[in-house]
Design a protein around this nucleic acid. Sequence first.
DNA 1: TTCAATGCAAAAGTTTTGCACCTCT
DNA 2: AGAGGTGCAAAACTTTTGCATTGAA
Lengths: 137, 137
Amino acid sequence: MKEIAQILREKGLKVTPQRIAVYNMLCNTKEHPDAETIYKTLEPTNPTMSLATVYKTLDFFKQLGLVQELNVGEGRSRYDADVDWHPHTVCTCCGQVGDLHLEALKNVSQKLAPELDFEVEMEQLILYGKCSECRKK
Amino acid sequence: MKEIAQILREKGLKVTPQRIAVYNMLCNTKEHPDAETIYKTLEPTNPTMSLATVYKTLDFFKQLGLVQELNVGEGRSRYDADVDWHPHTVCTCCGQVGDLHLEALKNVSQKLAPELDFEVEMEQLILYGKCSECRKK
DNA sequence: TTCAATGCAAAAGTTTTGCACCTCT
DNA sequence: AGAGGTGCAAAACTTTTGCATTGAA
């Protein structure tokens, strides 16, 4: 996997500790954290980082297409460094947000594009229900 | 179509002018308005209604399953009185939120349910792109 | 050195809450 | 009459913004 510092350098963008920290944190989690969680996670190792910078950095990566914003209806955004299209699951019991990588669900709408009076640029599929952990209980 | 007053009465729930106004407003629009828009729309005819009541009323109908909350990533919720499952379109150009009623897109995930380690209760498909109006330009 | 990024605090915007008063049943 | 709904204002949250300072190239 390519280093984020290298990706930024190749594009002529500034490499800062904050950008590296945010991006790497997102790459190393499957939790789809929100800005606050990212901030709290990085606080111990980056004590001077501010929440505003986390927001600005997330927006920066979003513009670059390196990070995806996700809203599952909690009143705040979550972020995902996996920008390949994939559906998300949201457990209505524990709140866990997960990824699904099913070929069968890919580009569901693009197959129907010709029938639609709408030019699809992006799609998002969210499944709400019970995760395996919560079903066991 | 059944009157909302009758639906509430049958369930033993209180019928108030505010509830009737909010529900009927939602039934008579395809715009998927947010709380503020609902409030502003009803203000002329219901001058004493407060925004807090709009929120409480929307939550009330949501619990009853008579109204659906929709978040397309704008930082606020929209509401829809059409609670049959259907995908939504969001125009990245003009912001318009529309409905799609395509059989082919229904229960996309339920067909795959057996393959998933997840019990789907509800699903939401949002297509982002250009609406027909914006494509003409 | 220069320009952009950061950090802070304040502001903006949405949604929730507490409570007194009112209204539906 | 009583339970529950409404309206108001304040509070709680998330996210954005302005600006002085810092830091990367």
